[in-house]
């Protein structure tokens, strides 16, 4: 049980990073982007690409595999993932926005997701890959559980990032403009809030968090082209559980989804792992569609 919780916390952090981006895009741009999970995969592979293209070693930092090389690669991957998010928006979503009903936009995002996932498949192959082949030793917590140092790092970094994002939205002028645009786009335009700026910032945050999440997945688990496909339901379950537009809710949602999954797998055969977030999602939609943490449909906190 303790072991399940410990594993759930690092998986939860990875889900939360994806869910925070999804919830912002849903809340502010009012767009349910099914390609978002593929941005995670893209980010993970871009870091791998940077390492192999530059010949850098992932390196290590104390007990952690997130060494200088991989940190640098992750930063580049974040930029490349933001670029992908912006290009997809410019080429596809932006052309449709305001012209078609929003569910057609959702449909287009499925098309984009297919393209991104299988382009990765085409470029990097379908087998699992790792940033580094170095062996790491687990930390033991008494006799109860053993955790990898990287899992702890992922958990802590995610909390810090979420705190930073919350502070940005809550206190900065740009964050205020984003919250305003989330509630009422027309009124925020009347107040001089530029949609293009909001669009740019939202995709930048979403893309950067997605890349970080993808790299963390690669560090703690492995890279495969279907990482995003596997994480899609957990991410959406977390975002909806947390209340759309609610960043702190998405963080909590990520941990809840992962913990439920980890604990449930003590009884349920692991083959059904992917169905667990789906059941959580259906329960939330059935019992409390606004999420546990009072999401505002079309709002950002």
């Amino acid at each position: 049980m303790i072991q399940a919780i410990a594993d759930g916390l690092s998986t939860g952090a990875i889900i939360a990073l994806g869910a925070m981006g999804v919830t912002l895009v849903m809340g502010i741009l009012r767009f349910t982007n099914f390609a978002h999970a593929e941005y995670l995969t893209w980010g993970g592979y871009m870091a791998l690409f940077v390492l192999s293209a530059t010949g850098l070693e992932a390196g290590s930092l104390g007990p952690f595999s997130l060494g200088p090389g991989l940190i640098l690669a992750m930063l580049v991957a974040m930029v490349l993932t933001v670029a992908l998010a912006l290009i997809a928006d410019r080429l596809v979503f932006h052309r449709l926005r305001g012209k078609v009903n929003h569910i057609t936009l959702v449909f287009a995002s499925f098309g984009v997701a297919l393209i991104v996932r299988y382009v990765i498949h085409l470029l990097f192959g379908g087998s699992a890959q790792y940033y580094s082949n170095d062996l790491r030793f687990a930390w033991r917590i008494g006799d109860l559980a053993s955790v990898m140092p990287d899992q702890v790092l992922v958990f802590v970094v995610t909390l810090v990032v979420a705190g930073g994002l919350y502070t940005f939205l809550r206190y900065s002028a740009l964050g205020l403009a984003m919250r305003a645009a989330a509630e009422n786009p027309a009124l925020s335009a009347i107040n001089g809030v530029r949609f293009r700026t909001i669009l740019l910032v939202t995709w930048t945050i979403g893309g950067a968090l997605a890349a970080m999440s993808g790299v963390f997945y690669g560090v703690t688990v492995q890279l495969r082209p279907d990482v995003g496909f596997q994480l899609l339901l957990p991410i959406f379950a977390a975002a909806i559980l947390g209340g759309i537009g609610n960043v702190v809710g998405a963080l909590a949602g990520g941990f809840i989804v992962a913990l439920v999954e980890a604990v449930a797998l003590l009884w349920i055969p692991s083959g059904y792992k992917l169905a667990i977030p789906f059941i959580v999602l259906l329960l939330v939609l059935w019992l409390r569609p606004t999420g546990l943490f009072r999401g505002t449909s079309g709002g950002a906190k």
């Binding site: 349910t32 929003h102 569910i103 959702v106 083959g271 992917l274 789906f278 259906l282 939609l285």
Partner: peptide, 28 residues
């Protein structure tokens, strides 16, 4: 019943989940 009284994208998410879950049942 679960999703149609909600916003349309929830139907998209839920049906996506059905697709995956059915496959899991088929395999497992």
């Amino acid at each position: 019943l679960v999703t149609l009284r909600l916003s349309e994208e929830y139907l998209a998410i839920a049906t996506f989940g059905i697709g995956i879950s059915v496959q899991l049942v088929a395999i497992n």
